[in-house]
């Protein structure tokens, strides 16, 4: 009697589950342009590309010798596959991952490495730096940083494998699960019309390197016009170097040295920089500050690739004013690998 009732009950649950899955797929196909493109909701961070990247990092097996850190310029600019290939050609075997995240500044990384990163420590941290990274008035980075440490992805970092497996399984069965924040962006009108939410603007490729999604980057003509206006410009803003920012660089250096590795800072070439920190005066002050920092901290490496190599880059190498496109990223990655091969610190 119980056996038959049990079968009936489980049959009922299976039927409901089937109907729920069908309805979920139907809704998802209306809400999203590519409903299958997702990471499990429990790993959601402040920005879709961060979720994808940290999901990929978690899925990757083995260790990484070099972790590339920084903001979106580094995210778009460094291709780990090319860096590794060039170094391998020079007889240096290594494996790298691009962990750079949009909008964060140097203050983000010490806490990220301490509280989130749970893999074996790399031999080298390669941190891309830009003028706003050092400025005490960079509030946008604080917002991003707080959003990261308040996200469900960060909250759930220490969950058991069974817990994570089950959550991942649920997200694969029910596409809509945990995506209410995204759905809200669609608006009722959009949902009724079935417009479909566009996929994220940043597509994360292999080992964390990012590219613009098709149609997001401005045209080359627009780029040329903007570059004419903005590439070399003056302004009244002065770089206000923050103690917290300099302290964060020192903390990161201590963290990696305590684990037997080293920290190398580097800069990325830009076509033009629309930000208030993109003026000639601020860039010069930034260069002076960086040189003073590495003089005071001789164990920290500094590869000033930006100004040194900017002339070699043309319009075709940029996705927008301060983000490289795949060809530019390839060029920078080769230059970076060459510089690393000659850097005796690590």
């Amino acid at each position: 009697m119980t056996g038959r009732a049990l079968l009936t009950c489980f049959g009922y649950v299976a039927l409901l589950a089937l109907l729920a899955v069908g309805a979920d797929r139907l809704i998802a196909s209306r809400v999203f342009q590519s409903p299958g493109e997702l990471v499990p909701a429990y790993r959601a961070f402040q920005e879709p590309s961060v979720s994808v990247k940290l999901h990929d990092l978690e899925q990757a097996s083995g260790t990484f010798d070099t972790l590339v850190l920084g903001n979106s310029r580094t995210l778009f600019g460094v291709r780990p596959d090319i860096v590794d290939r060039v170094l391998a050609d020079r007889g240096i075997a290594q494996r790298s991952f691009n962990l750079a995240m949009p909008t964060v500044d140097v203050r983000f990384w010490p806490r990220f490495m301490r509280d989130y990163y749970d893999r074996p420590a790399p031999k080298r941290l390669l941190l891309g730096v830009i003028p706003r990274d050092l400025d005490a008035r960079n509030v946008q980075a604080v917002t991003q940083m707080n959003a990261f440490f308040a996200s469900s992805g960060f909250d759930n970092r220490d969950r058991s494998a069974a817990w994570r497996g089950a959550e991942e399984w649920r997200s694969r069965i029910f596409t809509m699960h945990g995506r209410f924040n995204e759905v809200r962006r669609a608006g009722i009108g959009g949902l009724l019309r079935g417009d479909g939410l566009a996929p994220p603007q940043i597509r994360v490729s292999e080992r964390g390197w990012g590219q613009f999604a098709p149609g997001v980057a401005p045209s080359k003509r627009e780029l040329a016009e903007q570059a004419r206006r903005l590439a070399v410009r003056s302004g009244s803003l002065r770089l206000a170097v923050g103690d917290e920012q300099i302290g964060a660089l020192r903390q990161l250096d201590r963290w990696i040295r305590a684990r037997g590795g080293c920290l190398t800072l580097f800069t990325v070439p830009v076509l033009y920089d629309r930000e208030p920190w993109g003026t000639v005066e601020v860039r010069r002050a930034f260069e002076r500050t960086m040189r003073a920092f590495v003089r005071a901290n001789p164990r920290v490496g500094y590869l000033d690739l930006g100004p040194r190599t900017e002339d070699e880059y043309g319009l075709a190498d940029f996705g927008d004013g301060d983000h490289l496109d795949p060809s530019g990223a390839g060029r920078l990655s080769r230059q970076l690998a060459d510089a690393l091969a000659e850097d005796p610190r690590c």
């Binding site: 409901l16 979920d24 809704i27 959601a44 909250d155 699960h177 945990g178 995506r179 209410f180 759905v183």
Partner: peptide, 20 residues
Amino acid sequence: VGGITLACWLVAISLSRSSL
């Protein structure tokens, strides 16, 4: 009852936020 259960199930899926 089955209809109500299914509706609640779909609501729970579609309106859930990413964090638990």
